[in-house]
Design a binder for these strands. Structure first.
Lengths: 341, 341
DNA sequence: TTGTATGCGTTATCAC
DNA sequence: GTGATAACGCATACAA
């Protein structure tokens, strides 16, 4: 695919009988270059269809002006919304985005990180895979002097910038709203306990339950059932219990879908016999019937914030700043699935 | 952020008292390097935490091993699924992905392309913005000797590899299924007429109508209403007509949602009084009530195919191959919204 | 088997 | 104002 090579500053220099370095300065509008010369160079560049090669420039500069992103799946609303926000900020700052997906696998996550290190990215934004139970891969990044920003699914065993929602507070709000609707026997379906956000959501749940002086049978709190299928498998036995839950709070919308499947299979009506509350406000949540009560994480905003953190706090900073955790406010969206009236 | 620099082959060479170029060969397991030396180099590399800098290597090689992707929005199922497929293939071929979104704007699309050219990407995969009515931006890419592969939203005024669905055939099938269900007065909500896929979907619609000897009032075919809102605005007056349509075929699921909104607003029941058929099989389509009949485009497969086209037909080829259009079979998914019984 | 020289396209430094 | 030179990190043709 090399029919002919692209024009370089050497070509422009030759045509204009000036030196390549001077062309470079002219193109970057260096002060020491007269306006008339800048003009001449620009015209010749246009004429030769010259395009600046940013990778060569970045090699020279010792940067890549590229941000790496690792997410479990790019085709889940939460992540694609977040990436969308990240892309906007990066684009506005003349940086580009290299995206990898881990498919929730720790091994693939490690490979993706390896690739990004080879690519010499300036920063890595990561939301960890469900499977990830070690911080070795993150330490690997740090070992290569690449700053890490975790978002949403953060491992607190690794110190880095983090962008998350006010998970505990909003979960507390959600469960309170269930209690206000008259639900009394509320179960919880969670995610991997290593991931802080899932622990926090559980804490919020427990706080609301405790505050209302309700009791939770030990088997009403089930961790590590993050997918629709696994939540379904967890909900079925729960809903077959003599003293079955009258509401279920889950840490993702997909899990709520699994609960709804289970309820349908057992002929249990939502919301009258069973309240359901999800998390993430996926596109489908307001479209299912009954529409799903959930939590809007403002994911695009979360992505934007993560990227901005790089540009404001790390980029062009001399030393590594003290890490920090940014909290993005989220909102409960009460819909039919948790409204008894 | 330059606390200390990363190790290079020079560092390894110095430590081992051999030449840098020899290190390079040893690391790439060149034949002329003894196994014992390879081993020594590898160990030292490991020890110094050396990471291959692929951007420097690629600069030397005159490639970037990077594919650029431009889509309207990365957070729409169809596109994120397609990108997911593209990513898989690229990752398997040791290439990385730079992703830009046009937000359906021609101007942003052009800027994204400009960025990708600067980035020196080896190929650009693009699905054009709704607004795009010129092929200038694509010619700009070609002018820079970068191969273009259009997918889904292709402009046929620009000759390039293209990957699309069997739009006409599957639309024909979809409309036939509506007719089979007894719908007789079927309207069409389309996209921009410049984009081939939308024209083809219309052609399929017309073919089925013609075959069944049904007539279509001139105002039952409405182009260029691609979003939920615009489809809603188009559907409302249509459904207020004395001789209103008893079914509507749209070229996207979001449009169908707009139609459903309109029907709900006017108290028209789906599917008994109005059949609705969408396109794309977005995640939500099987979750809405009534569930939406639609067309599964096999978008991940479509993305994979687009990427494979690059690796199989363009990458490492001496001359630009003759372009070609690849058709990905799609399938109709008949659900409640178009089933009268 | 090992090493040398050169260049990829740019920019920063210094000299004129 | 303008230009020569080195360097970014690597790979390759060529020499030994």
């Amino acid at each position: 695919m090399n029919s002919r090579k692209r024009a370089t500053i050497y070509d422009i220099a030759k045509e204009l009988n000036i030196s390549p370095s001077y062309v470079s300065k002219a193109l970057s509008s260096h002060e020491s270059v007269s306006e008339s010369m800048r003009q001449r160079v620009r015209e010749k560049a246009e004429q030769l269809n010259y395009k600046h090669n940013s990778r060569a420039a970045n090699l020279r500069r010792g940067q890549s002006r590229t941000i790496g992103v690792v997410v479990p799946h790019i085709n889940q609303s939460f992540f694609s919304d977040a990436i969308s926000g990240i892309e906007e900020v990066c684009f506005a700052n003349n940086h580009s985005l290299v995206i990898c997906q881990s498919h929730e696998s720790y091994e693939k996550e490690g490979k993706a990180i390896e690739t990004l290190i080879h690519q010499n990215v300036d920063c890595i934004l990561i939301s960890n895979a469900e499977e990830t139970a070690s911080t070795d891969h993150l330490r690997q990044i740090a070992k290569n002097k690449i700053p890490v920003i975790q978002f949403d699914r953060c491992l607190d065993a690794f110190d880095s910038f983090k962008v998350i929602n006010d998970n505990k507070a909003v979960s507390y709000e959600a469960v309170r709203s269930l209690i206000r609707e008259g639900y009394r026997n509320i179960a919880f379906l969670g995610g991997p306990d290593l991931v802080k956000i899932f622990r926090e959501r559980k804490e919020g749940f427990i706080a609301a339950i405790a505050e209302a002086n309700l009791s939770i049978p030990y088997n009403f709190i089930i961790d590590n059932v993050l997918s629709r299928e696994r939540a379904n498998q967890a909900a079925l036995p729960l809903l077959r219990l003599p003293n079955r839950p009258d509401a279920i709070f889950t840490v993702s919308d997909l899990q709520s879908l699994g609960v709804m499947d289970a309820a349908a299979a057992l002929g249990i009506t939502i919301p009258s016999q069973l309240g359901v509350f999800g998390f993430a406000d996926e596109t489908f949540s307001q479209l299912v019937t009954p529409s799903l009560s959930t939590i809007d994480q403002h994911s695009a905003e979360l992505g934007r914030k993560a990227a901005e953190l790089y540009f404001q706090r790390i980029y062009q900073q001399d030393e590594m700043p003290k890490t920090e955790t940014v909290v993005i406010a989220s909102e409960i969206r009460i819909r039919q699935s948790s409204r008894r009236q």
